[in-house]
Design a protein around this nucleic acid. Sequence first.
DNA 1: ATTTAGCACTCAATTCTTGTGAGTGCTAAC
DNA 2: GTTAGCACTCACAAGAATTGAGTGCTAAAT
Lengths: 360, 360
Amino acid sequence: MTEANELTPRQGLLLKLIVREHVESPLPVASRTLVEKYNLDFSPATVRNEMAALETLGYLSQPHTSAGRVPTEAGFRYFVARLMEEQALPMAEQRRIAHQFHQARDHIGAWLPLASSVLAQTSGAASVVTAPRTMQSVYQHLELILTHGRAVLLILVLQGGMVEQQMLALAEPMTQTSLRETADRLNQIFAGLKVADIESRLGELPSLEADIARLIVSIMHNAEGMPSDEIYQHGLSELLQEPEFVEGEVASTAVVRVLEERSLLQAVLSETLTPAVGVGSVRVLIGGEGRWDELRTCSIVLARYGVMDYATGALGVVGPIRMPYGRAISVVRFVANILGEMVYEMYQPGIREVFPESGE
Amino acid sequence: MTEANELTPRQGLLLKLIVREHVESPLPVASRTLVEKYNLDFSPATVRNEMAALETLGYLSQPHTSAGRVPTEAGFRYFVARLMEEQALPMAEQRRIAHQFHQARDHIGAWLPLASSVLAQTSGAASVVTAPRTMQSVYQHLELILTHGRAVLLILVLQGGMVEQQMLALAEPMTQTSLRETADRLNQIFAGLKVADIESRLGELPSLEADIARLIVSIMHNAEGMPSDEIYQHGLSELLQEPEFVEGEVASTAVVRVLEERSLLQAVLSETLTPAVGVGSVRVLIGGEGRWDELRTCSIVLARYGVMDYATGALGVVGPIRMPYGRAISVVRFVANILGEMVYEMYQPGIREVFPESGE
DNA sequence: ATTTAGCACTCAATTCTTGTGAGTGCTAAC
DNA sequence: GTTAGCACTCACAAGAATTGAGTGCTAAAT
């Protein structure tokens, strides 16, 4: 997959301009247009020659014989990897976004929707944000609430504020009072412990407590493992306005399906670590990279945010292949950083515990 | 809005058949087709006469002079209100769905996504489910977690298991230990109280506790007021497959926007109480009912679920105007009932408190 | 050895025409 | 009131003609 053949500077320039032009409007770009629009000091004929070269290299393609050229996926990949200059967000926009997040500082539930809507609006594409998940869940507090008969609502608060709920059925009926005492006992023993610690103490507990504790252990394990299924998204309707989606029934429903089918989305998001083309900590998946067939018509720019090895989520934008990568990458990075900081501050006690050396 | 003019039985029959036919395939339906397919004992000419009558009444329309007829919105409304017979779900399907919910019984977080996916799959349209909200929030438990500097993560558990999170900034730095003591004090005082009760006790509290309590009050008020912004949906991609959406760029993006724009959705969902055409407790909104312009191309079948006057959410399906209402209504009702029961059982202690007479 | 002007050639997209047939409205008979 | 018969309408499909944007190639210019 590594591109052995380096392009000549002029070929690079042309590929870059073709991409830029194509991103602006989805039509194939013609040699003459290029020369005129960018005042190139060589002629359309020369451009055509170079285009032919770029085509044999696999970076361009022609929809039909007498049309202009369109970048191929490989072309976009080369562009992102070597030609693109990241297009920093204008200061005013940075301030505006930062301000919005600052306003939502106290309202935790608003963080992710806000991130999602900022991403969508600023990038003009659809956005996806997943809630952060810890690698290391720490017991904080347990509530047991009797609902009816022997059914009990279990609410488990983990460090960092994650909350897990579950119903459970008691073997024997109990009163709310004794249930509360049970919870209090468990809270005393378990507060601040990690899963492993709780597991090792299971033996010491009387049977009822042990049952509940086992359930807690499984919940905590679960919280550590899976990527969050809490996914926020925004901007799908704008994305569907893009010219490549208004016609193509196939293409557009594919995208909708991708954004709707969480399983696929999660698979893709957890791929953040694979060696796709990327810039800094931001990853760029172009046209599904051959691996995700449903994504052949679109690209994803994504990043992890949060505190590495402790609690992270993923966030990114989904757009047509011809998306303005430079801008998208900056936006994604910018939002990932802001959100990362907010999460960092929120999770700090937990982090101190996992990485004791990093305390204040 | 009340239909003064009653149709003759034969006109009713024809309207019904035309709707049925049109729902099956989106093409305009012709007089001859009707007679042949349903073995009517009168001729196409008669049907045409009746059709003409129905057209002047506003229940049918012709896309163009030499085409068949298509029901108008008014036609669909008349159909739903007077002609439709609810099409009960087959027993097997009922059992399958009930079983799925039974399996997810303990996994509270799965309830709403499951409801949403069941609705979508069974109705073939897109579905929407909002989380239940209490009318009456009752304090259960407070956790205060120091994060960094003076920033504190507040986790408030309300009765019924609703959890609200918020960041707050302390005026003075505190240790985690004294923060926990503060929380414990508030828990002792407030456990089981309603907002009003807490408000009336604000005066008795020392300043720090009072500040936090005021915040709690505002959170609880908030929880009572707004409809939940926690919205689950499913089946959008299937909906977009419907023939009326594959072509119409306008129509389809309108639908997507509706499903994406929570504010509109909430407005519509809270309209569940308005006197739209409805069957039992299930409401049917056809073509936006003139009020929601974005919905002109589609219909919504929805119901409240949960415990009336105590905690309810809304749930429904969004489909093309020509959706199989009979089926959709049964599915919505069925799922609303199941989910309602589950919520009822979960919230029971709270309900006992609000309606003491209904205790076991 | 590049670069470029010139020109023939290609082919999607647009417009126009024509034909077809499904389906109606009307009238006159039943 | 119902229906057979028939003229009429009009969307839709298929084909034909036109257009023009854009290339590839060749031969001259640098």
